[in-house]
Design a protein around this nucleic acid. Sequence first.
DNA 1: TCTTCTGTGACATTTCCATGACAACCTCCG
DNA 2: CGGAGGTTGTCATGGAAATGTCACAGAAGA
Lengths: 226, 226
Amino acid sequence: MTRVLVVEDDAAILRGLKDNLEAESYEVLTATDGEVGYQLIRDAAPDLVVLDLMLPKMSGYELCKKVRDEGMTTPIVMLTARGEETDRVLGLDLGADDYVTKPFSVRELLARIRALLRRTNPEPTALDELRFDDVIVDFRRYEASRGNEKIKMTRKEFGTLRLLAERAGLVVTRHDLLKEVWGHGHEPTTRTIDNHVASLRAKIEKDPSHPKRLLTVHGVGYKLDV
Amino acid sequence: MTRVLVVEDDAAILRGLKDNLEAESYEVLTATDGEVGYQLIRDAAPDLVVLDLMLPKMSGYELCKKVRDEGMTTPIVMLTARGEETDRVLGLDLGADDYVTKPFSVRELLARIRALLRRTNPEPTALDELRFDDVIVDFRRYEASRGNEKIKMTRKEFGTLRLLAERAGLVVTRHDLLKEVWGHGHEPTTRTIDNHVASLRAKIEKDPSHPKRLLTVHGVGYKLDV
DNA sequence: TCTTCTGTGACATTTCCATGACAACCTCCG
DNA sequence: CGGAGGTTGTCATGGAAATGTCACAGAAGA
């Protein structure tokens, strides 16, 4: 799921943005000052940042500049107060990708966010069906079957299998799985993944102890060969 | 029959795609250069185009851009060589709807074609009646019956059932239900939905505690299987 | 006002998930 | 070729989270 970080010290605005972004089904992280914002950009690797210009501890300027100086390319939408013409220019010069002037229309901000994401992270289309051998998995119905037998799969299993299927043939690291399937903040041990993979194998492999499809790449991760 | 145009200059790949698509019972048109491709898009109005990036006479870029500039919305799947990251972005910006990286698995391409067709030619959803077993629900009259008995249903129940019916078989999240049935701003707890579902089950299921139609997908939402 | 509908909370129940321990395995290096 | 150290497979288990169920109070409608 696409992850957006909002850095804004005004609680009311922050709340409003969070609600609206969540309603658009983004995963939303928040920070109310520049320092926490910076840490989150580094550690949580959001797909996009909405950044207020005036912030406690570290201003939007500084934050933006610092992030760019360190080579991070995370797209940034700057929020500026009306009339801060110079700020606009600065914002873009510092490496922000777009800006919106307060008071802004939420709809406009959302549109800009969408556009920016589309430009920078064209998201590979979600796969909604997987077939191999006599196994069929339908990710929109959350149904799976093998031959004539229905298979019961859990949400995490669907998520895991889906990511593997979207990168069929390529190795997916445990880290990637945690990031994509679990999302930020709810990150369990990597051992947990092994368990989910094991139970997936029990369900989709003919001989689960000698997998032919869902393969281990020792020291790296897993891959699905179809 | 669904008509697919493949524009690809490599004869072997073209042949392979044609065979596979025909095996899936698509009607297949082919072109080996951009100009012929363009004419076919215009004159034969295919339902979907598979477009190679590198082509004689007119490249995939140009073709895609030209088609979009002229206002045609024909879904396009772009074939790109691996590693052409920038091309991906360009492809999508130019208006391609999806892309597949060479060397690609035919199976994956077929899956994406199916998905894209489904996304772009969705069946119209203005559903005004739902029937299954001995239950009949008329969404225009706000009436429902089971066998000869009338069923009293509330507005929210109609709304909930209708959304589920419009996406019959697919999982609908609580979030979707809140957004569609309750609308923006008036959003109650997700628990509320469980209650409405429960009362729907009491009305339309033969054995409400072992539902056969209105099913729970643990951790995701509900779906209606008809 | 009275009735019906709706949202909420508490509780029971079901389902799922994270974790750790141990065994089996792989890889690299001696 | 064999063994040490790290990695993965497997399984059991406690606990967390999601859902079913019910009762009630406030809101909306008749």
